[in-house]
Design a protein around this nucleic acid. Structure first.
Length: 564
RNA sequence: UGGGGUAUCGCCAAGCGGUAAGGCACGGGACUCUGACUCCCGCAUUCGUUGGUUCGAAUCCAACUACCCCAGCCA
């Protein structure tokens, strides 16, 4: 793939790793992991994390694991596991034989908990969830010790074993770390390590009825896998002391264990990114599903026609830092345009057809004109496009009363038809009832055939077109951003983001016409519709019914001029 | 009011005491049988604010200010 403006990524995490390497940490190994919870579909924000983690492994000659953080059976499903694996693979990353699950470690996690209890660093607490909250204190006031905090090791051991055995009801008891109820960091106020949940786990079934919390399972899972750099998002910054406390308490060597590093998650303009909101869009039917082409999910972007290359390029260009940011959607669009420019076949498609009759063109004549498939890459060859007396051009390529800057067709004006001839508009035919323009009567200049033009004439405009008798009908879906407002983070209590959804995020055109070479177009194939944009064949395509998604429009200088 | 973070161009983002990279967006021009692509040119005397240290500060110090995160038996 040609990259006109390659970026050399450098960020604060590289600096940290370089320092660790200099200090011989982890015997100079670099090992990362991507740890999704299988409770939803991956989105472009996850792509940032995936590219970061796998990218670092590649850069340092290390490894990156895929590990499902499946410690909460009430929210997790295999459906998500499968989609996540597919998406990571599709993005172009390979976890080799290192596909893991936190649930792989349930037994070891349990043993480590026993050790904590024996060392007096964890205790079984009988407080109710409400009581635990009350005892925790507030942001400004310290918490107070649980009355169960000083149980004997023997009693804790007995209780914890019976928790595992299923003797107690859900929510009745938890295992807590004994740290400091007065810590200014709420995460250190005797955090819950294990809770009783009588739910069937998607992998371990009913084997367990106690499940470890993220804060407990994550550092241990990292350590067991030999992870050196555990990269997560900013909201876990406050959890780092706990991450380190767990590893300390369990005796993991400071110079040979994982360290947590936090970076800012991705936000994109005019869209939502939280799983909660994406789920709402799907469940309330505002979109057709997780893979709706308007969704910022990996599966949505894939269906829309985005390529892994473009997404990876995007992830490199946005950089990695710790400041909260809102990346302009136009950067993502730039990346897919740049990628497809060199790869996509050019074809002609008329989205909103306007009939054109060439009065001086023979009635039954058909010429098969040669058309290049991609001017950026001659090796992509040529194809034949039929030309005849009755054609269709784009409605917006004709103006009855044009401004001076309008280079397209107008009464008495000439334009070139791409790959064909120069034509002149002689007459405008309107519907006598509505006044709507229904047809253009034009003449063509036989001396101006593309490739053999010796007329010496130049015209300012070139239009795409299709031959009426050869064109194939198609449905074309045009997309706009899901949200009208750039930043949905600025939502306040009473305004629901659903109210700000763009009513025009999907516009379906049902009477578009495409050139006949597209007759056998296959799902997933991407084309540039000349002068329009990049389009992708949607899976809704069936025999005799072509459906295209507009991935992104071409840059449109004229649109800017005409607005002025 | 406790703790943890972040503040460099409209949006991202380098910079790590030696005098503000790059990308996107935007504006202008060249080229053009895609008003696309490509190519030129322009786009922060200034780095949240105010002081201080220094020959020299976006980089060090101090004090302010703004914004983000934390009171799940979610991750």
């Amino acid at each position: 793939m040609a990259e006109a403006n390659p970026v050399t990524p450098t960020n604060f995490i590289h600096n940290i790793i370089n320092e660790d390497l200099e200090q011989n940490k982890n015997n100079k190994r670099v090992h990362t992991r991507f740890p999704p919870e299988p409770n939803g579909y991956l989105h472009i924000g996850h792509a940032k994390s995936i590219c970061l983690n796998f990218g670092i492994a590649q850069l340092y000659g290390g490894l990156c694991n895929l590990r499902f953080d499946d410690t909460n059976p009430t929210k997790e499903e295999v459906e998500y596991v499968e989609s996540i694996k597919e998406d990571v693979k599709w993005l172009g990353f390979d976890w080799g034989d290192r596909l893991f699950y936190a649930s792989d470690y349930f037994e070891q996690l349990y043993e480590f908990a026993i050790k904590l209890i024996k060392d007096g660093k964890a205790y079984v607490c009988d407080l109710s969830p409400e009581e635990i909250r009350e005892y925790r204190g507030t942001l400004t006031e310290p918490g107070k010790n649980s009355p169960y905090r000083d149980r004997s090791v023997e009693e804790n051991l007995d209780l914890f074993q019976r928790m595992r055995a299923g003797e107690f009801p859900e929510g009745s008891r938890v295992l807590r770390a004994k740290i400091d109820m007065a810590s200014p960091n709420l995460n250190m106020r005797d955090p819950v390590l294990y809770r009783i949940v009588k739910a069937t786990h998607h992998r371990t079934g009913d084997k367990w009825c106690i499940y470890p919390m993220y804060d407990y399972a994550h550092p241990i899972s990292d350590a067991l896998e030999g992870i050196t750099h555990s990269i997560c998002t900013l909201e876990f910054e406050d959890h780092r002391p706990l991450y380190d406390w767990i590893l300390d308490a369990l005796g993991f060597d400071v110079n040979n264990r994982p360290r947590q590093i936090e970076f800012a998650r991705l936000n994109l303009t005019n869209t939502v990114m939280s799983k909660r909101k994406l789920r709402r869009l799907v469940e309330e039917g505002h979109v057709a599903g997780w893979d709706d082409p308007r969704m910022p999910t990996i599966s949505g972007l894939r269906r829309r026609g985005y390529t892994p290359e473009a997404i990876r390029d995007f992830c490199e260009r946005i950089g990695v830092a710790k400041s909260n940011s809102l990346v302009d959607y136009s950067l993502l669009e730039h990346c897919i345009r740049q990628d497809l420019n060199t790869r996509a076949h050019r074809v002609m498609a008329v989205l909103r057809p306007l009939k054109v009759v060439l009065e001086n063109y023979p009635e039954d004549k058909v010429e098969w004109l040669e058309a290049e498939n991609n001017p950026e890459n001659p090796e992509m060859g040529t194809r034949k496009v039929p030309f005849s007396k009755v054609l269709y051009i784009e409605q917006e390529d004709f103006m009855e009363n044009p401004s001076k800057k309008f280079f397209r067709l107008a009464p008495g004006k000439e334009v070139r038809l791409k790959h064909a001839y120069i034509i002149k508009c002689e007459e405008v035919v309107k519907d006598p009832e509505t006044g709507e323009i229904i047809e253009l009567r034009c003449t063509y200049d036989p001396e101006t055939k593309s490739g053999a033009d010796n007329s010496g004439r130049k015209v300012k405009g070139t239009l795409h077109w299709v031959s009426a008798q050869h064109a194939i009908p198609a449905e074309v879906r045009l997309y706009e951003p899901l949200l009208l407002e750039e930043n949905q983070e600025e939502e306040n209590e009473e305004t629901d983001f659903i109210e700000k959804l763009n009513p025009n995020s999907l516009i379906t055109l049902t009477s578009s016409l495409v050139e006949p070479s597209l007759a056998e177009a296959k799902t997933g194939e991407k084309y540039q519709f000349l002068r329009q944009g990049y389009f992708c064949v949607d899976p809704d395509t069936a025999k005799g019914k072509l459906v295209f998604n507009r991935i992104v429009s071409l840059k449109d200088t004229w649109a800017k001029i005409s607005k002025k």
